[in-house]
Design a protein around this nucleic acid. Structure first.
Lengths: 147, 147
DNA sequence: GCATAAGTGGGGAAATGTGGGGAGAAATGG
DNA sequence: CCATTTCTCCCCACATTTCCCCACTTATGC
């Protein structure tokens, strides 16, 4: 279960520290790929394979399904963790997510069954956007509790 | 069943003592997250997992659902209790609840199936608000009897 | 009043996040 | 084919944070 958010950096060699609390669940390897809303997604091997199967099962006749499949697979990369607990994010993914600058600030966000990696500026925007919403996050969660 | 309220403090390391009477029910672990009215909620593992499953089940195709999910999981944290019966409240949650000052005063409130954590000032405000409106509580209780 | 438990504070060891150097592999150009 | 450059990976080093343990004070119960 990936929870919480962590302020990290991607150094000028493209390395990013994986939050220590996430490493156990990623011990069997991990995969990074591009994701919706201009962020990156990091999956454990098991989760990635499950998701890959689901994406592959989408009807090839549907244009949206084809596009999702393209996004998902074409930019995916396996990540290996070094002795300092860091992974290497491929250059094209760093560019996609807007974290290609030297020592770029990123937010690493637990999403229960996967992890999202955001340029910090974009993350604060998302957060601000949600806070502004009159139908607040708390309210929506409260409604979910009732179900 | 969580009952009663307790005057506690969060020290400058972010640690807060869990009321002794709550510890039995939280023996299997607990999770803290943001909640309505700028307070924090503390759940038992079972209760949190139920809620997390509901949030995870929201459709990823909807941008609002994606953002809801982001905020929910990014502000949640598993809490481990130390030998003194304390838990660590993550910094971003302390800020959210207005208890980021050193040795901040908090109110820990039993809410039957979960626990609320309040900055003491905010708690007294809420209480005062209720006192000002003597009819409302009686009225609501009366309405509840109808159910 | 005494014994036990509960809440609070602080010190020290270990883990975490980050930066940089250097060996080796891969790519480029002659 | 060789020499040079570039890139990747591994290791070490440092600052900071986190975690664990011990000690003290207050509250509770017999």
């Amino acid at each position: 279960m990936f929870l919480g958010r962590y302020d990290h950096t991607i150094d000028n060699k493209g390395r990013m520290a994986v939050p220590a609390k996430f490493r156990n669940e990623l011990a069997d390897g991990m995969y990074v790929t591009r994701w919706l809303d201009k962020c990156l997604a990091l999956y454990s091997t098991a989760a990635f394979e499950t998701l890959a199967a689901k994406v592959s099962a989408l009807p090839i006749s549907d244009p949206n399904s084809r596009n999702l499949r393209r996004i998902f697979f074409s930019d995916a990369a396996e990540c290996e963790i070094d002795k300092q607990g860091r992974i290497n994010i491929p250059a094209h993914l760093r560019e996609f997510a807007g974290v290609s600058a030297d020592d770029a600030a990123v937010m690493v966000v637990g999403m229960n069954d996967y992890i999202e990696i955001w340029a910090r500026e974009r993350w604060t925007q998302v957060q601000a956007q949600v806070e502004e919403d009159p139908n607040s996050i708390g309210q929506q969660v409260a409604e979910l509790r009732m179900l």
